[in-house]
């Protein structure tokens, strides 16, 4: 049996793997809806951060309390990180996949590197939240006119800090693995080009 016979003999088995494609139009529409939902979710998250940031900045000018300064900084930072996430980590448009595989991988690597920086930024932000929570507790114990209220807010912020830190640690590991995967595939392509 010649090599060509061997591969040609596999064509039948390969092409016998067929699927029902009747619902393809629904699949495309569903995919577009999914993209739209994802975009709306990210925009909504960003809007919440910016709304809180605006509210606390306004409170800084009105009341001037140091806790408002802290809260304004916390939400402004979160808003900026969410904005960077939205701008730099957009899904690649379909036309981008018409480029060469190497260019697609370059773009994927660039995005993964930005993703790593953003995950680091969010982890740092979780620490900032934890500090904010500690300040709330401290203020409540030392100087609050209504004891207990600051502690409750501090508890909520502290919980958010812990959740964010663990979530971002997971995201960091994922993006790290993605970056390694992209690099490995690029190395494979380069090796094939050189041989």
């Amino acid at each position: 049996m010649s090599d060509d016979d061997f591969l040609d003999g596999l064509k039948g088995d390969w092409q016998s793997q067929d699927a029902d494609l009747q619902a393809y139009a629904d699949l495309v529409a569903e995919g577009e809806q999914k993209l739209c939902k994802e975009r709306t979710h990210r925009l909504g998250q960003m809007a919440v951060f910016w709304a809180f940031a605006a509210f606390f900045t306004w409170q800084v000018f009105n009341a001037g309390h140091f806790l408002f300064h802290v809260a304004a900084v916390v939400f402004l930072t979160a808003g900026l990180i969410a904005l960077a996430d939205f701008v730099f980590l957009r899904r690649m448009h379909g036309e981008a996949y018409l480029q060469q595989a190497g260019e697609v991988l370059d773009q994927a690597e660039r995005q993964a590197r930005i993703g790593l920086r953003l995950a680091e930024g969010m982890k740092a932000h979780a620490v900032l939240l934890a500090v904010c929570s500690a300040l709330m507790f401290g203020y409540d114990i030392v100087a609050a006119s209504e004891p207990g209220r600051g502690m409750l807010i501090g508890l909520v912020i502290g919980g958010a800090a812990v959740f964010m830190w663990f979530a971002q640690r997971g995201r960091y590991c994922e993006v790290r693995a993605e970056l390694d995967g992209v690099r490995a595939m690029r190395a494979e392509l380069q090796d094939a080009d050189e041989s």
């Binding site: 996949y97 018409l98 595989a101 993964a112 994922e174 993605e178 995967g181 595939m185």
Partner: peptide, 21 residues
């Protein structure tokens, strides 16, 4: 060629993302 190019490139990018999960 271009339809399959998109398919392969999209798959490469999908696999890269899937490595972490």
């Amino acid at each position: 060629p271009y339809v399959y190019r998109i398919a392969h490139n999209r798959s490469v990018s999908h696999v890269a993302k899937a490595v972490g999960r």
